[in-house]
Computed example of a mutant assay.
Amino acid sequence: MKEPILNEQLMDIGGFTHSLVHNKNLQQFETVHIDLTKSEEELLQKLHRTNRKQINKASRHNFHILVIDKPTIADIRAFQKFYNHFAKFTNTYSCNSFHVNTMSKLKDKNALVITQLLNEENEILCYRVYISDGDTVFSLYSASHFRLKEKKEEKRLLSLASRYLLWRNILYFKDLNLTIYDMGGLTANENIRSFKMEFGGEITPVYSGYEANSLVGKLVLWVRTIKMRKG
Rank of each mutant, 00 (worst) to 15 (best):
M1N: 09
L10I: 08
D12G: 00
D12A: 10
G15Y: 07
H18Q: 01
N23C: 09
N25Q: 13
L36V: 05
K38P: 02
E42K: 08
L43G: 09
L44G: 08
K46N: 14
H48T: 04
H48C: 01
H48Y: 03
T50V: 04
I55A: 13
K57D: 09
A58S: 11
R60A: 11
N62D: 14
I65P: 01
L66E: 12
I68V: 15
I68R: 02
K70E: 14
K70C: 15
D75L: 11
I76N: 02
I76P: 06
A78E: 03
F79D: 06
K81V: 07
Y83C: 07
K88A: 12
F89E: 13
T90C: 05
N96V: 06
S97R: 11
F98G: 00
M103D: 07
M103R: 04
S104Y: 10
K105E: 15
D108Q: 15
D108N: 15
K109E: 15
N110L: 11
A111L: 10
V113S: 03
E120G: 05
E123F: 04
Y127H: 08
G134F: 09
V137D: 05
F138K: 04
L140A: 10
L140G: 04
A143Y: 05
K149G: 08
K149H: 09
E150A: 13
E150F: 08
K151N: 12
K151E: 10
L157I: 13
S162H: 12
S162T: 10
S162Y: 06
R163K: 15
R163P: 01
L165K: 05
L166T: 03
I170V: 13
Y172F: 13
F173T: 04
D175H: 03
L176Y: 02
T179G: 01
D182Q: 06
G185I: 04
E190C: 00
N191V: 06
S194V: 02
E198H: 09
F199A: 11
T204K: 14
T204C: 11
P205G: 01
V206C: 09
G209W: 04
E211F: 05
G217I: 00
K218T: 09
W222L: 14
R224C: 00
R224Q: 02
I226A: 11
M228V: 14
R229N: 12
